[in-house]
Amino acid sequence: MQSVTFTILRYDPAGGGEPRYQDFQVNITKPGMMVLDGLNQIRWEQDGTLAYRRSCREGVCGSDGVNVNGANMLTCVTHIEEVARKGRVVIQPLPGLPLIKDLVVDLEDFLRKYFTVKPYLITRAPAPDKERLQSPAERRRLDGLYECILCACCSSSCPSYWADPEYLGPSALLNVWRFIDDSRDEGAQERLDILDDHHGAWRCHTILNCVEACPKGLNPTKAITGIKTALLKRKF
């Protein structure tokens, strides 16, 4: 049976020690095994103390973003064979976020930034009895935005996000553009007030790591460009 070495960053807050790397052998028991299958195998058969998040195991709940061989991705939709280099996979927690245990990071600050941008529909006109109308073309503008799963792969891959603790980050900015660009929404101005700040949209220097990192194929940089354009249009 073929096996792959998983080199995993271990951290136990109770141990008092520094993070360290530990090697495990994962047996490839079926074709198409995902990184999550490997982590489960380790925990179920070798070391029950390994901690990581997971739930849907199909790439929609956003629990299991980690860093594999230097790139952020979801363990449940990443084939081991695609990422293994010379029979080895190096797995670390998402970078730039506080550690809780092993591959589990603290997302409080990441989520606080998401909450800050008012990520919900804001309307002033009273709702009609039926649905609000939206043309297919208007609705299509939300494609590539509403699918965000809040996995934090993008923000934790962004050097500007690492460097500026107050930067809202690509995830929050993509999510706020999802509402500004929604034909039903009337909250653009109050959101743009929040975003027109050097910790807001202007902190993005189009490094594009977020685009590379997004497991859903979304483009936060494009959304941020939309915000910047809206901010400029508002000024002039």
Partner: peptide, 20 residues
Amino acid sequence: VVIELEHMGLPFSRMDDGRI
């Protein structure tokens, strides 16, 4: 309950006339 979800902002797919 569906109309209520639309009012909350659920991005339903649309028919050509703009309805759900």
